[in-house]
Design a binder for these strands. Structure first.
Lengths: 204, 204
DNA sequence: TTACAATATGACTAGAGATTCATATGAATG
DNA sequence: CATTCATATGAATCTCTAGTCATATTGTAA
């Protein structure tokens, strides 16, 4: 948790620092990211950095919290109240759609989370034992889908959840690692959902 | 490319060094991996390391070559001659199956490749511009599937390829990040293929 | 045995980056 | 003002590791 000093800062300065942090962590994995670069970019002295944060990890944890919170805010409105009202596949569509929207609105944030996924050790330090929260989320969703009778009961929830999570990372990649930020969300989502619902087999 | 000195080494010693490298790179991303640790583990002096390799990257590149070659050897026998003989989904099954077998036989190798994927810069240095070879592989396979009439023609090959690649990483995860090394390959593959072919929707 | 080449070694160097610290600035208080 | 408290600063320190190098050892061929 950042020190009080940080929260006492004028908002403009705080934002400058967080922006600098985002720039650095979006382009470098945690261990490659440099405190010096963040300080320079934010226009503060290196020493000041340590007035605000315990250390590099402290800032990173705080940033991740912000990212998760922001990402959640994209899901909530459409989903939370919707459960029960919508069917499983509609929910799933909403989840991916909010993922796309989040990624498009915050192109620098998504890569930070994805990079973190590949540093299991750091991930654990930040989110605790559960190796991947999103897998768990999809697993629950799938089980709900089974109850509803929407998902084939023989599907292995854990495996399918891993697949769905893997696909959502693929989605992020598709959108901007490949520069398709301008594609219509609906077109992409429809494609994905079609594949997930019906598979890729040509039916006779 | 390692120096001649390395290839002149007795096989036993060469293997000791590669084993040590695998241990280090399997547990640490490239930049975190320590030459010192590799030398210690292999029981050679640090200076010797530089008799054998230009630098850390030299060893890593060489190791990746070995891994790719080994992985290829799992695919080839079943697949290369099979194209034409088998249908698209059979080919896909073979691909995933060989992926599983490779991962099971070489539990420490797969993570090395997966970690590399998240270091785009290093990846490019090693494999050149193409950001992800496996995506490209799946794209070609899908296009072949379309020609065959097995894959629905409206499927976006690039998106689907990313999804398939994402799923194959998920598969590796499923198998040993979760400790299911003992699961029957066929059961897992059947699940996955079923999902990919038919989706997860419960048909009425 | 001697001389030469190839290989082995670990102390040493260089550089990078995180973190600390003594000092400076400045605002608020009395 | 003088004093205190919060914040700012960047030079100095500390740690870590890649990579070098002068020296020692081993193997070999004459």
């Amino acid at each position: 948790m950042p020190k009080d000093t940080f929260f006492n800062l004028p908002e403009e300065k705080r934002e400058r620092i967080m922006e600098a942090a985002i720039d650095e962590f979006a382009t470098h994995p945690f261990h490659q990211a440099r405190v010096t670069a963040i300080a320079e970019e934010a226009g503060i002295a290196k020493g000041s950095f340590y007035q605000y944060f315990e250390d590099k990890k402290d800032l990173f944890k705080y940033l991740m919290e912000q990212i998760v919170e922001k990402k959640m805010s994209y899901i909530n409105c459409n989903l939370v109240e919707g459960k029960g009202k919508y069917g499983f596949f509609q929910l799933l569509r909403e989840v991916y759609l909010s993922g796309i929207r989040f990624a498009k609105d915050n192109p620098r944030l998504a890569p930070i989370g994805i990079m973190l996924l590949s540093d299991k050790e750091l991930y654990r330090e930040i989110f605790g034992e559960h190796t991947d929260k999103s897998v768990d989320f999809f697993r629950q969703l799938l089980e709900y889908g089974k109850e509803q009778g929407a998902v084939h009961p023989k599907i292995d929830s854990v495996l399918a959840a891993k697949m769905l999570a893997g696909m959502s990372y693929a989605l992020v990649d598709y959108i901007y690692a490949d520069g398709r930020l301008d594609y219509d969300d609906m077109v992409i989502i429809d494609q994905m959902l079609y594949i997930i619902e019906n598979g890729i087999k040509q039916k006779e």
